[in-house]
């Protein structure tokens, strides 16, 4: 257990002002084709047979909740529950199929640079690309890139192509990018899992620091321990539906009971 101190929970949740994020009856449906890739040829063949092409995957179904300013929200749930999908929708990358999302503030998402964009480019080049895509100016990005390099502490690898990175190094870089983008709303999707113990301590400290200035934080994690330690609120998703919205401990208890594994040592250590 690394995130022992839980000072982020000390920050007051503000219900008197509009919520940082408001999710209203949100549904997201992926539309994939039966074919591996949709092609003109198969479209014509299908037209001849009168088949329907798309298959719909309902990743999020009628989800509604508000995230007040000051919340650090843990999001837990089994694989395929729709956690990453929800994050991508809040970040504005995925358009809702129905429903509505309101976000007040600037989003920085760790899904942004998860593994980088172009593995042939160096870490620094990827950071610059990501920053520019988020709308930063060139000088801001250059300055930020140095801070990011310093925080990620991956040494000379910052100027090496991304393919040469270990997964832990990539995770360190991704985390550093997310926390250095001056986010109002920070979203972290399973980014801490690959870092080593020393980096996790550093990351936890940084996140607590950020919570002082950030309006809200979303932490998607399978390590229930870090959700309990870092969050003051929690949702549990299952198959795209909201199962429970409660304080982290209640959610975790319910979730683990649901999974029938109990809070065993493995889950705790796995953080």
């Amino acid at each position: 257990m690394i995130f022992l101190s839980a000072s982020s929970q000390g920050k007051a949740v503000r219900t008197d002002i509009p919520p940082a994020v408001s999710i209203q009856d949100l549904s997201i449906t992926y539309r994939t084709t039966f074919e591996k890739v949709p092609t003109l040829r198969s479209a014509i063949v299908r037209l001849g047979r009168g088949e329907r092409a798309v298959r719909q995957i309902k990743a999020i179904q009628n989800l509604s909740f508000d995230v007040p300013v000051g919340t650090s929200l843990g999001i837990i749930g089994a694989n395929g529950a729709g956690k990453s999908t929800l994050m991508r929708a809040v970040a504005g990358v995925l358009a809702p199929s129905s429903g509505r999302i309101e976000v007040r503030g600037r989003i920085s998402s760790l899904l942004a640079l998860g593994v980088g964009f172009n593995s042939k480019l160096t870490g620094r080049e990827n950071v610059v690309l990501g920053g520019l895509a988020q709308g930063m100016s060139r000088s801001e990005v250059a300055e930020r890139a140095n801070q990011i390099a310093e925080f990620a502490d991956i040494g000379e690898f910052m100027d090496m192509p991304l393919i040469t990175y270990s997964s832990g190094m990539a995770a360190r870089l991704a985390f550093s990018v997310g926390v250095h983008m001056d986010p109002d709303i920070l979203m972290i999707d399973e980014a801490l899992s690959a870092g080593d113990a020393a980096f996790r301590v550093k990351a936890a400290a940084k996140m607590e620091e950020l919570m002082e200035s950030a309006r809200a934080m979303f932490l998607v994690s399978h390590s229930l321990g870090s959700v309990r330690d870092m969050c003051n609120d929690c949702v549990w998703l299952h198959k795209g539906k909201l199962m429970l919205r409660a304080d982290p401990q209640t959610c975790i208890d319910a979730y683990t009971k649901f999974l029938e594994v109990g809070e065993n040592a493995f889950t705790m250590e796995d953080m």
């Binding site: 002002i17 809702p96 129905s98 309101e102 976000v103 007040r104």
Partner: peptide, 12 residues
């Protein structure tokens, strides 16, 4: 903390 813009993502 309220200076910022509101982003609305809807189903269009």
């Amino acid at each position: 903390e309220l200076r910022d813009e509101l982003h609305v993502y809807d189903a269009r």
